[in-house]
Amino acid sequence: MSIQHFRVALIPFFAAFCLPVFAHPETLVKVKDAEDQLGARVGYIELDLNSGKILESFRPEERFPMMSTFKVLLCGAVLSRVDAGQEQLGRRIHYSQNDLVEYSPVTEKHLTDGMTVRELCSAAITMSDNTAANLLLTTIGGPKELTAFLHNMGDHVTRLDRWEPELNEAIPNDERDTTMPAAMATTLRKLLTGELLTLASRQQLIDWMEADKVAGPLLRSALPAGWFIADKSGAGERGSRGIIAALGPDGKPSRIVVIYTTGSQATMDERNRQIAEIGASLIKHW
């Protein structure tokens, strides 16, 4: 067993022997301040990774656009098919120029040779490549099948209805392509620590998230040296922004954090800054 596999296998073990965790309302004060600064709703939840206990939450059962955070769930569904012998990570998928959609920095470079399922998941999570996500959605049967996968996990809230990039439209009061912070946090925890996926697939999923290259201005910008984070960000229309993450000190994750916002007129930089400040408060009061 590799060191990384050992780390993920012992996530519940280490967490069980940690000192009790206590909620700190100071972080919620910052979440509410972010709402004021952005002029928009902000949803927040913080779960203990081992027990699933909610440590703090704000608007945990209000719907927010998922945006690209759905790509972690998508690759979880792909990995479940791999575990069941219905898919192979090494299978190569070929596609054409007509398949390319807006923001496809990886797939646009491989029109000639195609990409493997493993490479597509890596591109979808680490670079948020939209064509990679659409190609992977095709392998599982489309958005409705991802929703069905989530329902089978016990998540009857999260739903995907459309493809990239239309799913980022974020129309107010439109339930399409949305989740709730509580539902997303619980589902992410199941994917990373539950028995739904094999140990190898859980490790692969967290490795992809740990290698995320496009979430630097968010929670990662607030992390002290030595902290662990595996995350996936999302951005959408109407001032929408979000991030889902597993993080913790001492090089291992111990909490799940989900943050979503929508309806702001603020710039992307300002949305990023507010999420980073929430992260800084979380870490300060850990």
Rank of each mutant, 00 (worst) to 15 (best):
177 D>N: 04
57 S>Y: 11
14 F>T: 11
220 R>G: 04
156 H>Y: 14
127 M>Q: 11
224 P>F: 03
256 I>D: 00
247 L>G: 01
3 I>H: 12
111 L>D: 07
146 L>C: 05
71 K>R: 01
24 H>N: 15
61 E>C: 08
240 S>I: 01
36 D>R: 15
17 F>G: 09
229 I>W: 02
103 Y>P: 07
146 L>E: 02
250 D>C: 12
138 T>P: 06
20 P>V: 03
77 A>C: 14
204 Q>H: 11
222 A>T: 14
286 W>H: 04
229 I>K: 02
269 D>W: 10
48 D>R: 04
168 N>Y: 03
254 S>N: 13
228 F>C: 07
29 V>T: 12
29 V>R: 09
278 I>P: 00
240 S>A: 13
142 G>E: 05
142 G>T: 07
217 P>R: 09
198 T>S: 13
207 D>H: 09
251 G>P: 08
256 I>Y: 03
118 R>P: 04
209 M>E: 01
2 S>G: 07
204 Q>D: 08
83 D>G: 05
283 I>L: 10
191 L>G: 02
70 F>H: 07
13 F>M: 15
124 A>F: 00
220 R>P: 02
46 E>R: 04
17 F>Y: 12
14 F>H: 04
205 L>T: 03
74 L>M: 09
35 E>H: 03
204 Q>L: 14
1 M>K: 01
260 Y>K: 00
115 M>I: 07
264 S>I: 04
143 P>V: 07
62 E>K: 06
166 E>F: 14
11 I>V: 12
261 T>H: 06
193 T>F: 11
32 K>P: 01
130 N>M: 01
266 A>H: 10
267 T>N: 12
83 D>V: 03
139 T>E: 15
194 G>N: 10
9 A>S: 15
90 G>P: 08
191 L>M: 14
282 L>E: 04
117 V>K: 01
231 D>S: 05
211 A>P: 04
164 E>D: 01
1 M>W: 01
169 E>S: 14
63 R>L: 09
241 R>Y: 02
276 A>Q: 12
161 D>E: 08
177 D>G: 03
129 D>P: 00
186 T>C: 15
278 I>W: 02
183 A>P: 07
105 P>I: 07
134 N>A: 04
199 L>T: 11
267 T>A: 13
115 M>C: 07
36 D>E: 14
86 Q>V: 14
92 R>A: 09
137 L>R: 01
242 G>W: 00
248 G>R: 02
190 K>A: 13
61 E>G: 15
179 T>F: 00
216 G>S: 09
163 W>V: 13
68 S>I: 00
5 H>E: 09
171 I>N: 15
99 D>M: 12
27 T>L: 08
192 L>N: 02
16 A>I: 10
225 A>K: 15
